[in-house]
Structure formats: C-alpha cells, structure tokens
Simulated scan of single mutants.
Amino acid sequence: MKRFVICAAIVAAAMSFIGCQRSQAPVLFHPQGQPQTLGEWHVLSSDGTRLTLNQGVEPYALNTALFSDYAHKLRTIWMPPGTKAKYDANDAFDFPVGTIISKTFYYPRAEGGAVLRVAEQKGESANGLDLSKVRLIETRLLVRRQTGWTALPYVWNEAQTEATLARAGDTVPLTMHKPDGSAKTDFAYQVPDENQCAGCHSTNNTTRELHPIGPKARHLNRDDPWHPGENQLAHMVSLGRLEGLPGAGVAHNARLDDASASVESRARAYLDVNCGHCHSQVGPADTSGLWLDAGTDDTRRLGLCKPPVAAGQGTGDHLFDIVPGKPDDSILVYRMSSLDPGAMMPEVGRATVHEEGVAVVRQWIADWLGNCTSDGAHVAMR
C-alpha cells in the first residue's frame, strides 16, 4: 500500500510537470486576417521576465546577417507538423503553407534605459531571452498562406508582455553606447510599415511576390548555435523539416566577423545579405545595373568602374560605383556611410552606420588593382 502511495505521488508530480510544460497553447496559424497581437499566434510568449519559444518553434541563425542598427535578432521557424521545406541551391527554401517565420529584434540593456552596442554572445538565446538583460523592440512575422507570404510587424509594449500589430510602422527613440560608455548615440529606431516590408521582401521585380530573405542554403550552412557539433542544415533534416539537401556542394557565405576568412568573401557575404535581394538581376534595383548578390561574378555588374544609372544626389559627386584601390572615391562606400535619406543605402532599416560592415567593404575595394578611365573603362595594372 505504501509503495502504491509513493508511485501515485510520483505520477501526480510527473503529470503536474507535464501540465506546466504544456501550459502554452499550441502554435495557431491564421490562414487569413491580421491578428492584432503577437500572442494570438502562440509562437512566442512573454511573462515580462522571459521570452520563450513554443513547442516546435525552432531557432536559426545566419552566417552574416542584415544590419539593423546593431539590434540583435532571435530568428525562428515553425512549420505545420508533418511538413517539410524543400531545399533550393540559390533561393529561399520552398516552405509549406502554414509556415510562420519570426524575427525578434532586441538589445542588451544598459543603465538609465539605454541599450548596448555589443555583438551577440554565445548562448544568449539558448532558452529564450532573459528580459532582465535585454529589451525587446519588435517581432516581425512572415507567414506562408495559400495566396503567398504575408509580412506583419509587431511592436513590444513597455512591460515586455505583448507586442501589437503596427501596420503603419513605428518609431522607437533609443540611446545606444558601448559597454565602456563611449560611442553614445541617440537615434530613432524605425519599425517598417507594411509597404516597406514588401519593398525588401519583394525580391522579384516582375512578380512582386513576397519571399523570405534569410532562409537560404548559403546563409544557413553553418554550425548550429543551439546544438553544438551539428550543422544547422543537417539538423533541419534530422528534425524532418528539410528535404533535398545534397550530401556535398552546398554553398556557404562567410561570416563578417570571421578574421580567418578572406576580405573578399566577407565583403561579398555582407553585400549579398544586405543588398543582394534588391540589387540582383531580377530584384527591385535590377535597372540600376549594380548587382550585389552572391551569384554575380561579372566585376562590371559588381560596380567596377561602373557609372551610376539613376542615383541622383546619391552619388556624392563620385563618378563610379567602385573605383579600384580608392574606397573614398566609390559611390558604394559613400552610400553605405551616409545617413542622408536621399543617399543612404539601404534606404530603409537603419538610422546608424554599420562601421564594421563599411570597414570590410572599404578594405575589399582598397585591395582592387587598376584604374578607371574617364569613360568608365577599367585599366588593369601590369
């Protein structure tokens, strides 16, 4: 009898634990409409002290990420049970209807309500996010519906307990500095509106359909930060979430912060993820003639001694997109370094200059040899 009581107590405790584990309702895919709060999707939840991921919501990371005013990002993918994404060698994977991709923007906290400009730390989001250490700004959802992808931006409240749909975008004033208190910057963090979301995610200028940007083989082909010793793509396969992954020959973009990688590979990876979705043969900036995606090898298309097509004041009175050996004479560096709305590139998504990214692109251009003639021809050095 005593043994039965003990066993019953153990079972009761186990059931209580399971009940706590399952207290969050399953992910809820909305096939239409625009839910007004992030919580209605049940992808992420916050009690004001910790942001947690629901069951089946998998985090992922990119080799080199798009710059967003030094914000850190927790990226996740949820797919309906039993479904898989289809591998694509160059473009974003083909995700099934019902897929929800989330990207949460946040900053490490500093004293006095400021935020810190520091790189993401290993294990920072291993079990969600500790909100005593970080401040949530926004979460963007990209939802795969029957009619295509839908982009929905949600802004977190001051209590950090819920995020509300911001169809018209939003502005969040922030003060950012380095841990030693230097490089103090006051800026207005911009949450994009629906049109701005579409402006970046409409990666094909002909169809104008929205598509994911980050979930591509070359961006995802890396060590999995949440599962040490595993490749991120291989882990997706092991979870039954990806089909068609080849055994070899998968493209790989360099990491911007990898000092062991060549300057060229780091610069090209940075330009690919930050600019290549627009500046490509089929992207919204196709008529510019400047293609910065990973698949472009033609140096003229990459900007070498290429005069601008319709940059206007964005040239800064410079003559060519890239002048070999002279980053200060190159339009590309000028626009990346500018905060002038009429000149800065990218046009949206930042209110500060990414010093580290600009530095790598500057060095890449400085390493090029030759000269540009007045009519735009490249003369190689002999």
Rank of each mutant, 00 (worst) to 15 (best):
V333Q: 06
L302P: 01
Q160S: 12
G56Q: 11
D193V: 04
V115A: 10
V250W: 03
G181W: 09
R109L: 15
K184Y: 00
G240Y: 02
P173Q: 09
R335P: 05
Q363F: 00
D272I: 08
K84G: 01
T299E: 12
V115T: 14
S46N: 06
H354W: 14
T287V: 15
A61G: 10
L44C: 08
N204A: 02
H72M: 06
A310H: 08
H318A: 09
G316V: 12
I10E: 01
A248S: 15
F95Q: 03
P324Q: 06
D91F: 10
R140Q: 00
D293E: 13
T175G: 07
L174P: 12
A310Q: 07
N195K: 04
K306S: 08
S16V: 12
G249V: 06
S330F: 11
N274H: 04
V250L: 01
S238A: 15
S238C: 04
N204Q: 04
I137C: 09
T373D: 08
P173H: 10
Q32V: 01
S132I: 04
G295C: 02
T296W: 01
V143N: 05
N221C: 11
R382Q: 02
G98C: 08
Q232T: 09
K178M: 07
G98A: 07
P215S: 03
P96I: 05
G283S: 14
